[in-house]
């Protein structure tokens, strides 16, 4: 009775092709010896990558993004961890409402947050827009992801381990440092990686809130208008896709291991 190749399997394969097809065009054409992304392919070249590496403003934007994403990942995870502990370990009045408020960036269009932050920063507080303002907004939108990843790990392991630690005389901090943190570690790394990717790829907030120093997506967006910049965009886009994919797979594997692993 068990057929291996059902129509549904065929559908799943078509779905995957639909999902990946357009995106994979970017690496394909980034190696093609042509200024336009058109068929037929002309020949293999690495010159688009070479010209990208020689583009100073692009490298500057890349550096900005790396710095912002790293700091954002650390802060969002550092805030997410105590939040996740509070939400999983304590029955707090208003905890549900706070959790719901923290999850809002997942549903509300980011343009709303972007313009609201723009208003308060520029019109009310008179703050100069910079990478700092971009970073602050990124912490806010990364936080729900950090909290979700960390909470699922904290709910996944046996709470009696923490109780045992307390019974054996550790105080709250000692229990956290010697029991909770080591057990939550895979999720902490996973959260760092996810927040890094989100911040690194984020465009809308960065577009509204960056000053003269662009992040990489903002820089890329500016390049998209010029057809002759296309090859460089393709090369850079391919590299971004490759690095994000590696980071996502690493984060996902860590998260799964963290959730499934039952401590003996």
């Amino acid at each position: 009775m068990r057929k291996i190749f059902t129509p549904l399997t065929l559908y799943a394969i078509l779905f995957t092709v639909f999902l990946y097809g357009p995106v994979l065009l970017m690496p394909l054409f980034s190696f093609n010896d042509n200024t336009f992304a058109v068929f037929p392919l002309k020949g293999f070249t690495l010159k688009h990558y070479a010209s990208m590496a020689a583009n100073g403003s692009m490298l500057g934007a890349l550096w900005n993004s790396l710095v912002v994403a790293t700091i954002v990942a650390v802060i969002a995870t550092a805030v997410g961890l105590p939040t996740a502990i509070a939400l999983t370990r304590y029955r707090l009045r208003g905890g549900g409402a706070i959790a719901a408020a923290l999850m809002l960036p997942l549903v509300v269009p980011s343009i709303i947050f972007a313009v609201a932050l723009l208003v308060i920063l520029v019109r009310i507080l008179n703050v100069e827009l910079s990478l700092l303002t971009v970073g602050a907004s990124h912490v806010f939108i990364c936080l729900p992801f950090a909290i979700m990843v960390l909470m699922s790990r904290l709910e996944g392991f046996d709470k009696s381990l923490e109780e045992a630690s307390r019974d054996l005389g550790e105080d709250g901090w000692g229990t956290f440092r010697r029991v909770t943190l080591p057990l939550a570690w895979p999720a902490v790394i996973s959260s760092l990686l996810m927040c890094f990717i989100i911040s690194f790829d984020e465009f809308v907030m960065a577009f509204f809130l960056s000053g003269t120093d662009p992040t990489l997506p903002v820089f890329l967006f500016g390049q998209l208008r010029f057809p002759n910049k296309l090859p460089g965009v393709l090369a850079l886009g391919s590299l971004i896709l490759l690095v994000s994919t590696i980071l996502v797979v690493a984060a996902e594997l860590l998260r799964r291991r963290g959730v499934q692993e039952k401590p003996a």
């Binding site: 995106v23 065009l25 890329l220 971004i240």
Partner: peptide
Amino acid sequence: PFWTSYLLRVFS
């Protein structure tokens, strides 16, 4: 794909 750059997916 959900985690890779939205901008790049649109651009593709």
